[in-house]
């Protein structure tokens, strides 16, 4: 009986520590994220807890179309996080989890078949925003998991770049990609020597709006949607 009580007390203690960590990570800093905001973390969890309808933060994620000929955008919801870097990491984690981990389509929502854009097992270790329009993302294990030649490199890289640019149009006008914590000259075929700009030409079809539907049939843009679309100047790819 005494042993059981000790186990119960230990379990309560662990739960309290975990709760404190979660609160600490999720709580916005009194001073805001500062000029360089950073999020770090481990491997994405494909079986994330479902977010109750209407409680999530709208996000646009990019997967590969069923024919492997471009990217397709999909609107989803992720857990709202005040820190923009942690929020960005959560969005990229959802992409690593792949289309199979996406919530089922809502009635009337047209969702085309798609393939993962970022190989499973890739870790989004960190996202930074430099405050000058460049996001920096550190991807661990991407290069060794890619197959399919340079097209796969292009699709994986610009899935990340377009997702950050679309969800954070002011803070991620460009994206610098680090591999395994280091600056890299290339991913194999694609140069990483300079920050990458978003590419609408790789996206097949429309990109859903980030606006949140409200009761009267209108919609309300979310905070990050105030800036211009990163794709405004680019010609879309014909479907």
């Amino acid at each position: 009986m005494q042993r059981a009580a000790k186990r119960f007390a230990a379990a309560i203690g662990i739960a309290l520590v975990l709760f404190a960590i979660v609160v600490r990570v999720s709580r916005p800093s009194k001073n805001g994220p500062g000029p360089i905001a950073r999020a770090t973390g481990g491997e994405a969890t494909p079986t994330a807890t479902p977010i109750p309808a209407g409680k999530g933060r709208p996000a646009i994620v990019f997967f590969v179309d069923a024919e492997g000929q471009g990217l397709v955008a999909r609107r989803t919801e992720v857990t709202p996080i005040a820190d923009p870097s942690m929020q960005a990491k959560a969005i990229l984690d959802a992409m690593v989890a792949g289309p199979a981990a996406m919530p089922p389509a809502k009635p009337g929502e047209l969702v085309s078949e798609s393939l993962p854009s970022i190989p499973a097992g890739t870790v989004v270790r960190a996202v930074f925003f430099d405050g000058k329009g460049t996001a920096i993302v550190d991807l661990v294990g991407l290069a060794e998991r890619l197959g399919g030649g340079s097209d796969s490199e292009v699709l994986a890289l610009w899935a990340v770049v377009d997702a950050l640019a679309f969800n954070f149009p002011v803070d991620a006008r460009r994206v610098r990609v680090l591999l395994d914590g280091r600056e890299a000259e290339s991913l194999g075929h694609v140069s990483l020597a300079t920050p990458l700009s978003p590419r609408r030409d790789l996206v097949i079809g429309e990109v859903p709006s980030l606006a949140i539907p409200i009761a009267n049939g209108q919609s309300e843009p979310i905070e990050e949607d105030d800036g211009p679309s990163p794709f405004d100047d680019l010609v879309p790819m014909a479907p």
């Binding site: 492997g68 197959g147 399919g148 030649g149 340079s150 097209d151 796969s152």
Partner: peptide, 9 residues
């Protein structure tokens, strides 16, 4: 030619 891309295609 391009084996990786051809595998994908």
């Amino acid at each position: 030619g391009g084996t990786g891309i051809e595998r994908r295609r």
